[in-house]
Design a protein around this nucleic acid. Structure first.
Length: 1119
RNA sequence: GGGGGAGUAGCUCAAUGGUCAGAGCGGCGGGCUUAUAUCCCGCUGGUUCCAGGUUCGAGUCCUGGCUCCCCUACCA
C-alpha cells in the first residue's frame, strides 16, 4: 500500500527528510560505487570564493552543476565529484582586515604577517564549511568534507598549527601537523573539496611561472599603474573594469606664468590636483590654434577651441598662433619651491642644453585635444601612464609623490605625510596664495575604483611583474605565419580557444576579443595572503630567477630553509629562504609580492587532476569534458587564466565544452551581490521556497538572459510543481481507496486505452528529449519538455481519465488505468530526477518502493529513455494533437455561441486532415465526451465548410508587377478571383501562374476556425427540450458536487439530497445524478426543517432550483 | 573616450524587404473541475525611439539624431 499523500505538501520539510535519508542510506556513496569503472565524464568545478555564506545568486550555477552531474551519473558515467574553493587573495584579506578594524597595511605588519595569514586560512575554512552545508542543502552531490571537520581544523590552526593531528581519508587516516594537513586538503589521500591554497596548487603555479621564465615571457615592468591606496596594491587590467563608476572630482584650472613673457600665463586644467606637485611640463597640440586673451589685468594663453568652456567672464582676444610656436616656452611651475621638485629638476637634463638644470617647458603632444579643459595639458610623468610614456619619450624628469598607502612622501613641504585624498584643499589654498588659481568647479566623469573596497584609484610609479602576452599583429589571424603564432602567446591561446565548444556561441567571440585586446598579465600584488611568487630578483647583478617548486627551493636554498620547513608556502615563512643568484652567486631573497589570485584558479586543471604526482590519472581526466560558470567577468578571469596556463604548459584546451549563464539580479534591478546589499540569503530562500522550486526556477530560465530573482517568480515555479504533485496525490488517494498495488512488471501498454497508450508514448518521447537536451547542455529545453509532459499528464490524460479511477466497475480497466498512471509518474520521476532531486525522490520512494528489486533511490536508477522507448507511438501522438486541437476549436465555438460545456449538444461536424486517421474511432469518442455532444459526424470532403482563397506569393511577383501589387492584393483579400483551367488565377486583371500563388482553404464565416492542418470543426447550436433537460441535470449534478466540497465531505461519504423546483423532464435524469454524487436518495421538494447540512441555489434553464444535502450516517456510526 | 549590439503591447521577447506586426506573462471577462493553489477559451492592449530617405511595398535597408546595454579605456 502506498503512503498517504497530502494535497498540500510541505516541500521544505520533505527535503529535509530526504537529505537525512540520503545520509543514512549512503545513497551518494553507493552511486559512486555503482558507476566506478564506467566511462569517464570529467567535470571541473570552478572554485567558489570561500569568503562569505552563499546567496541565492550562487545557486543558479550550482544548480546547473548538479543537474549535469546527476544526469551523467544516470548514464552510468564515472565522475570525480570534486567541489572547489577559491581561497587566496584580496577578497579574504579585506574581510579579515575589517574584522580586525585595520585601515592600512601597517596595521597588518604590526599585527604580524604569520598571524594575519593564519586568520585568512581560518576564514576560508569557516566559509568552506558553511558553503558545504548550504550546497548540501541545495541537493548538490559532491565529495564533500565533513563541515565539522573543517571547523575543527580551523580551531586547531588557531590554537597551534604545528601540533600533529589525524583526519580520516578515503584510504585510511592521514596524520600531519595541522598546518600541513590543511595544505593537503583535496589531495587524493585526504579527499574532499580542493582548496586553491593547497601546497600542490601553489607548487604547480611555481612550475608554470618557471616555464614562462624559461621562455622569456616573465618580466619586471617599471610603469605607472592604477593603484589602490587603501589596499596598497596595484590593480591589474583584469580587475580594472569591475570598478568603473561615476565620480565627482575637482575640475581645477590654474595659471602658469610664462618666464619670458611677463604678465602672461598658460591656463591649465586638471581633475587630479595632487598631481600638480609633480608637474614638469605643459603639453600643447602642435596643430591646434592657441590664442592670447585679456581678462582685466590678466593675459592668458589657451586653445582657441576651448574659450567658451574654459573661461569665466568676458575676454578679449589679442593674438592667435599655432601650438607649435608655443613649444619651448618656459614657465614657472606650481610648486617650484618643494625640495622634491628642486631635486628632480637639478638632476634632470634640460631639453635646451644638456648641462643646464631642467626647467618647466611647453612641449608638443599630438594627443592634446580641445574637448575638455584649456587645450594645454599638465604633464606629471610620475602620476599617469600616458604622462609617463610622454615623459620617457622626451626625457623629462619624474616626480613620484605617493607611497604605497597614498601618503605624500618626504620633500613636499606641508603636504608631506598627508593622505592623497585630503590634499585638494591645501593645494587650492596654496595656489590662491601664490596667485595661480583661476577656477574650480566640480567635474563628473567615469573613474576607476578599487573593485574590492571602492576606493578611487590613483596612479603610481611602481615595479610589477608581468607575463608577456606577445605582439598583436596588424592582420587577420588567417594570414599569420607559424613563426608569428609561435612568437605570441595570445595567438596560441586563441588556437586553443578554437578547439572548445562555447555555449552560448557568443562566448567564443568574447574570449577571442579579450585575448586580442589583453595587455600583458600583471601577476604581482604587494600584499600578504596568497601565492608566494617564486621570483628571486638579485640586487647585486640585476638578474632574476624563478624557482619551479618546493623541492627545487630546498635544493637551492642557501639559508632559511629551517625556518620554512613544516610550513605551507605562504608568507612570512617562505620569505626566510634565500637562494644563490645563478648569475653572480650572491644570496637573493624572494620578492615580497604575492600572486594574482587567478593564477590559483587557473592551475586547477593540473593541480586537482594530479598532473605531477599521478600522470596516468591526469591523462584520464584531462581535459575536462565540461565546465560551467557565469559568463560575465570570467572571460578575463577563470576562463582566461586556465586557457593561458594550459596553453603554456601543454598547448591544449583545458576543457572541451563550456556552458555560460548570465547574472542573477536583485529586486532593485542590479546584479545581485553581497556588497551591493541586494543579495537574498540562500538559507532563507531554501527554507521559504524549497530548493526544488529554486532549481526549477533556475533550470527553466534562459541561461543567456539575466534572471531577476523574486518571490513572485518563485511562486510561479512552485505552482507548476504542485500540478505534478497533485497528479501524484490523486493517484495515491485512489490507489489506496481501491487497494491497487504495483505488480512490478505491468506497464499497461498492451491492453491500455488510446489515452493510456498515448501518455506512455509521451513519457517515452519526453525521456528521449530530456536526455538529448541534457546531453547537449540545454537544461532549459529539458525542463520545458518536462513541463509539457506535466501538462499533458494533468490537463489531458488525467482530466479525461478521472472516472476510470474514481468510479469504475470494470476492474481490468481500472487496473490498467492505475498501472498506466503509475508508469507515467515513475517515468517522470526518473527523467526529472537530475533537475528535481527531492520531489522525484519522494514520488519514486512511494511509488517505486513497492517494486521488488528496484533501487531504493531514483538517483540509483539508470536513464530511462531506452527502457521506455518501446511504448513510443508517434502516429498516435500526432493524432492526439489533432484531437486536442479539435476540442479547443469546439470550445471556442461554444464560447462564441454562449453555450457552456455542460450543456449537451446534438452533434458536431469534424473534418480531419489527411493522414490523421490513426485511432480515429477512439479519438472521435474522446472528442465527443470532452465537447459533450451526442454525435460527431466526420466530413470527408471539407469543401462545404471552407472556401478557396488565393495567396499571391509576393517575393515571386513583386518585382514583376511593381505598382500593380496593391490592386492584386486587394483583389485577393476580397476573394475577387477567376480561376483558370490550367491552375492559373486572375486577380485585378493580372494573371498569375500556378507557382506564383498558393491556394488556401479557409473556413467560411460563421463556422470555425482551423488555420492549420486543414482541421475544421462545426457545432450544431440548436438546443431541443431534451438537450436542455439533460443540461439542467448536469448543472444540478455540478451544484451538488460543489455543495459536497463546501460542506467538507469526504470523497466516499454518501449523502441524501433534496431538490426543490426542478422541472419533470430534468428530473428524469435524477438517477444518473444520484450515482455521480454518491446520493442514496434524491427527494423532490424542500428539505424538512433541520435535516440539511448545506444548501444552495442553482439557476437552470427554466428557473432557479434550491438544493440541500446531508451526510448519510453509516451503520454503527455514532449519531 | 573607442568598438559592438539593441530600441516593437504594461513586462519578456518574435517577425528570409511582402501588404491586418505576433507569442507568452499581466489585466479584464467567461468556462471546466469533489486531484489542482491548476487548467481552458475569449477580449484587451502598438506613433515598431525620433526625423528624413530608397522602394510598388520598410519593424526590417540607408542617413542623421536620441536612449539603453555589452565590451574596452587613467586623455589633462
Amino acid at each position: 500500500m502506498f503512503r498517504p499523500v497530502s494535497a498540500k505538501p510541505d516541500l521544505v520539510a520533505q527535503e529535509h527528510e530526504i537529505l537525512a535519508e540520503w545520509r543514512a542510506r549512503r545513497t551518494f556513496e553507493r552511486l559512486r560505487a555503482q558507476n566506478a569503472g564506467g566511462p569517464k565524464w570529467s567535470f571541473l568545478d570552478g572554485p567558489i570564493t570561500a569568503n562569505s555564506p552563499m546567496g541565492v545568486h550562487h545557486a543558479w550555477g550550482r544548480a546547473y552543476k548538479d543537474v549535469f552531474q546527476r544526469f551523467h551519473a544516470m548514464l552510468g558515467e564515472d565522475q570525480r565529484w570534486q567541489n572547489g574553493f577559491d581561497c587566496q587573495g584580496l577578497w579574504v584579506e579585506v574581510n579579515v582586515e575589517r574584522d580586525l578594524g585595520f585601515t592600512n597595511k601597517r596595521d597588518i605588519e604590526d599585527y604580524g604577517i604569520a598571524e594575519f595569514v593564519s586568520l585568512c586560512k581560518q576564514r576560508v575554512l569557516t566559509y568552506a564549511a558553511r558553503q558545504t552545508e548550504q550546497s548540501v542543502r541545495l541537493g548538490m552531490w559532491m565529495d564533500w568534507n565533513d563541515p565539522d571537520e573543517l571547523r575543527r581544523l580551523r580551531d586547531l590552526l588557531a590554537a597551534d598549527p604545528s601540533r600533529p593531528t589525524t583526519i580520516e581519508g578515503p584510504d585510511g587516516p592521514v596524520t600531519d601537523s595541522v598546518e600541513m594537513l590543511v595544505g593537503r586538503l583535496g589531495m587524493p589521500d585526504v579527499g574532499g573539496s580542493y582548496f586553491t591554497f593547497s601546497n600542490e596548487n601553489n607548487d604547480l603555479i611555481w612550475g608554470f611561472l618557471k616555464e614562462c621564465h624559461r621562455r622569456g615571457w616573465l618580466y619586471k615592468g617599471h610603469d605607472t599603474m592604477p593603484w589602490c591606496a587603501r589596499c596598497g596594491t596595484g590593480i591589474s587590467q583584469m580587475e580594472m573594469n569591475e570598478g568603473y563608476a561615476d565620480r565627482e572630482d575637482p575640475g581645477l584650472t590654474i595659471r602658469l606664468p610664462l618666464v619670458d613673457r611677463p604678465g602672461e600665463d598658460l591656463l591649465v586644467w586638471t581633475t587630479t590636483p595632487w598631481t600638480l606637485t609633480s608637474n614638469v611640463a605643459a603639453a600643447v597640440g602642435p596643430a591646434l590654434r592657441y590664442v592670447k586673451v585679456r581678462q582685466g589685468d590678466a593675459i592668458h594663453w589657451l586653445a582657441k577651441g576651448t574659450l567658451k568652456q574654459a573661461l569665466t567672464g568676458t575676454f578679449e582676444v589679442l593674438e592667435e598662433r599655432p601650438g607649435s610656436e608655443l613649444v619651448g616656452w618656459r614657465y614657472a611651475g606650481p610648486f617650484d619651491d618643494l625640495p622634491a621638485v628642486r631635486k628632480a629638476f637639478a638632476t634632470g637634463a634640460s631639453p635646451i642644453a644638456a648641462d643646464a638644470p631642467y626647467e618647466h617647458r611647453v612641449v608638443a603632444w599630438d594627443e592634446v585635444g580641445e574637448e575638455e579643459g584649456t587645450g594645454i595639458v599638465h604633464v606629471a610623468p610620475g602620476c599617469g601612464a600616458e604622462d609617463f610614456a610622454l615623459g620617457k619619450a622626451l626625457g623629462l624628469p619624474m616626480i613620484a609623490p605617493l607611497d604605497e598607502s597614498g601618503i605624500v612622501v618626504d620633500g613636499f613641504g606641508s603636504l608631506t605625510g598627508r593622505d592623497v585624498r585630503d590634499v585638494t584643499d591645501p593645494i587650492v589654498e596654496h595656489l590662491k596664495h601664490e596667485d595661480r588659481f583661476y577656477r574650480l568647479e566640480p567635474y563628473l566623469h567615469r573613474y576607476p575604483h578599487c573593485w574590492r573596497c571602492q576606493t578611487p584609484l590613483v596612479f603610481r610609479l611602481v615595479d610589477e611583474w608581468y607575463i608577456s602576452m606577445g605582439p598583436v599583429y596588424d592582420k587577420p589571424r588567417a594570414e599569420l605565419t607559424r613563426a608569428e603564432v609561435d612568437a605570441s602567446l595570445r595567438y596560441q591561446i586563441m588556437e586553443v580557444v578554437d578547439r572548445i565548444r562555447w555555449i552560448p556561441s557568443f562566448g567564443y567571440d568574447r574570449e577571442l576579443d579579450w585575448l586580442l585586446n589583453m595587455h600583458d598579465w600583471m601577476i604581482s600584488k604587494k600584499r600578504y595572503w596568497g601565492l608566494a611568487l617564486p621570483i628571486y630578483d638579485c640586487h647585486a647583478c640585476g638578474t632574476f630567477d624563478v624557482v619551479g617548486g618546493r623541492d627545487e627551493l630546498r635544493e637551492r636554498a642557501v639559508a632559511g630553509w629551517d625556518a620554512f620547513e613544516g610550513h605551507t608556502p605562504h608568507r612570512p615563512y617562505i620569505d626566510a629562504v634565500t637562494v644563490a643568484c645563478p648569475s653572480c652567486g650572491a644570496p637573493v631573497e624572494r620578492i615580497k609580492d604575492v600572486g594574482n589570485p587567478w593564477l590559483d584558479a587557473g592551475i586547477v586543471p593540473f593541480s586537482t587532476l594530479h598532473f605531477r604526482e599521478d600522470p596516468g590519472y591526469w591523462q584520464e581526466w584531462f581535459p575536462a569534458d565540461f565546465i560551467t560558470e557565469s559568463f560575465p567577468g570570467q572571460f578575463r578571469n577563470w576562463f582566461y587564466s586556465m586557457l593561458a596556463m594550459s596553453t603554456v604548459l601543454r598547448r591544449e584546451p583545458p576543457f572541451v565544452t563550456i556552458f555560460g549563464y548570465a547574472l542573477v539580479f536583485g529586486g532593485d534591478g542590479r546584479p545581485m551581490h553581497k556588497s551591493s546589499g541586494n543579495a537574498v540569503d540562500f538559507d532563507e530562500a531554501a527554507e521559504r521556497m524549497g530548493v526544488d522550486v529554486m532549481r526549477w526556477m533556475y533550470t527553466t530560465a534562459r541561461p543567456e538572459e539575466n534572471i531577476r530573482f523574486g518571490w513572485h517568480a518563485a511562486d510561479d515555479a512552485r505552482r507548476e510543481l504542485l500540478v505534478l504533485w497533485n497528479v501524484y496525490a490523486f493517484f495515491v488517494t485512489y490507489a489506496r481507496l481501491n487497494g491497487w498495488q504495483a505488480t512490478g512488471s505491468s506497464d499497461g501498454s498492451s491492453a491500455g486505452t488510446v489515452l493510456d497508450r498515448w501518455i506512455l508514448s509521451r513519457a517515452a518521447a519526453t525521456a528521449a528529449v530530456v536526455g538529448d537536451r541534457l546531453a547537449d547542455v540545454d537544461a532549459a529545453a529539458a525542463a520545458k519538455a518536462i513541463s509539457t509532459f506535466i501538462d499533458d499528464l494533468s490537463t489531458w490524460y488525467l482530466r479525461l481519465s478521472r472516472k476510470r479511477f474514481s468510479r469504475n466497475d470494470d476492474a481490468a480497466d481500472r487496473s490498467t488505468a492505475f498501472a498506466t498512471l503509475h508508469g507515467a509518474l515513475l517515468a517522470l520521476a526518473r527523467f526529472a530526477a537530475p533537475i528535481l532531486p527531492f520531489l522525484t525522490e519522494a514520488i519514486y520512494g512511494n511509488l517505486g518502493g513497492a517494486i521488488a528489486g528496484a533501487p531504493d533511490s531514483v538517483h540509483l536508477t539508470r536513464w530511462p529513455a531506452d527502457e521506455l522507448a518501446p511504448a513510443r507511438d508517434e502516429p498516435l501522438e500526432r493524432a492526439m494533437a489533432t484531437a486536442r486541437a479539435a476540442v479547443e476549436l469546439a470550445r471556442t465555438l461554444r464560447g462564441s455561441a454562449g453555450i457552456r460545456t455542460r450543456q449537451p449538444l446534438a452533434r458536431m461536424w469534424l473534418a480531419v486532415p489527411g493522414g490523421a486517421e490513426t485511432e480515429l474511432d477512439a479519438l472521435v469518442a474522446l472528442i465527443r465526451d470532452e465537447i459533450n455532444v451526442r454525435a460527431v459526424e466526420l466530413i470527408g470532403d471539407e469543401s462545404e465548410l471552407v472556401e478557396r482563397r488565393v495567396k499571391p506569393l509576393l517575393p515571386k511577383i513583386g518585382r514583376k508587377h511593381g505598382s500593380a501589387i496593391p490592386a492584386i492584393m486587394a483583389a485577393a483579400r476580397e476573394n475577387a478571383v477567376e480561376y483558370g483551367a490550367d491552375g492559373s488565377v486572375t486577380l485585378a486583371g493580372v494573371t498569375l501562374a500556378p507557382d506564383e500563388v498558393e491556394i488556401l482553404a479557409s473556413p467560411r464565416a460563421g463556422t470555425a476556425v482551423a488555420h492549420h492542418d486543414g482541421l475544421v470543426v462545426v457545432i450544431d447550436t440548436e438546443l431541443t427540450d431534451d438537450l436542455r433537460a439533460e443540461g439542467d441535470a448536469r448543472e444540478l449534478q455540478r451544484a451538488i458536487q460543489d455543495l459536497r466540497k463546501d460542506a467538507g465531505l469526504a470523497l466516499d461519504d454518501r449523502i441524501e439530497v433534496w431538490v426543490d423546483g426542478l422541472a419533470d423532464d430534468a428530473a428524469a435524469h435524477l438517477d444518473d445524478v444520484a450515482e455521480e454524487t454518491l446520493a442514496d436518495t434524491i427527494h423532490r421538494g424542500p428539505a424538512p426543517a433541520g435535516s440539511a447540512e448545506a444548501s444552495s441555489e442553482v439557476a437552470l434553464s427554466r428557473g432557479s432550483v434550491t438544493i440541500a444535502l446531508c451526510r448519510v450516517r453509516r451503520a454503527g456510526e455514532a449519531a
